[in-house]
Design a protein around this nucleic acid. Structure first.
Length: 236
DNA sequence: CGGCCTGTTTCCAA
DNA sequence: CTTGGAAACAGGCC
């Protein structure tokens, strides 16, 4: 997860492998994206905090913060944009071996409720830390964790051992629901359902369902976290 | 201007 | 083995 992935040697090799290739299919687990090349390799992209892909046709309008461009025969381009440079671009043998090698869990949507419960049970850390740990299952990021914890009324610092099976099951259902809806909205913040906590996720903001309990900001596992205090009470 | 924040992951020390 | 904290980075906002 650093700039070494963009060393001159790495870029040269990448270019060699990409030239003349077609993309044949794509795959994804969690936040890890893969595009298959007609030569059998897979191009792996991770967008970090600030990365995205953007299609453009006019070279003079190259998007800002572009770090990597794929040119197509028809004159179109795809830009890998990455303002904060936390993204990754690299060739890998295939998504599943990458997943295993890097100790990553399966995609959340391919994780059963039982597997979800087992992954959280026994963890001696705040439930939010466990949710963000991509080796259990992949796909839950910071705002999604806050979203599902709000929905289920669970305080992010509560330890999984203090939660009932019922609560953990609710958490699983909320996770699946939030991820599905986020995908439906193309993960575009402005397109999220109006009731989404993400729309109000800011210190001192007022959620319409909790007008007397302004949103509180705290740090959990080093990540900024936002809760509605009257709804999310820590269980010690 | 300084200091702190941010849709993430990995690495290292305890 | 697990866990917590810092680092990698650039720009926006007090």
């Amino acid at each position: 997860m650093n700039a070494i992935k963009f060393s001159k040697a790495a870029v040269r090799k990448l270019r060699q492998k990409l030239i003349g290739c077609k993309f044949t299919t794509t795959d994804r687990f969690g936040k890890y994206f893969f595009a298959k090349l007609s030569n059998g390799h897979w191009l792996h992209l991770h967008f970090g905090l600030t990365g995205n892909l953007e299609l453009f046709t006019d070279q003079s309008t190259k998007p800002q913060y572009t770090r990597f461009i794929i040119m197509f025969k028809n004159g179109e381009f795809i830009a890998f944009r990455d303002l904060r440079k936390f993204g990754i671009v690299q060739l890998v043998s295939d998504p599943e071996s990458y997943r295993i090698e890097h100790n990553l869990g399966p995609d959340l949507l391919k994780t059963t409720e039982d597997e979800f419960l087992n992954a959280l049970r026994g963890r001696k850390t705040a439930v939010k830390n466990a949710l963000l740990d991509q080796k259990n299952f992949t796909g839950i990021g910071n705002w999604i964790a806050d979203e599902m914890l709000f929905e289920t009324g669970i305080h992010p610092e509560t330890h999984p051992a203090k939660l009932s099976d019922q609560q953990l099951k609710e958490l699983y259902q909320a996770a699946v629901k939030v991820v599905r809806q986020a995908i439906e909205a193309d993960t575009h913040y402005g397109s999220f359902p109006a009731h989404f906590f993400a729309n109000f996720r800011k210190k001192d903001a007022i959620h319409p369902s909790h007008k007397t309990s302004p949103i509180k900001a705290l740090k959990v596992g080093g990540r900024g976290s936002y809760i509605v205090p009257e709804k999310q009470i820590k269980i010690e």
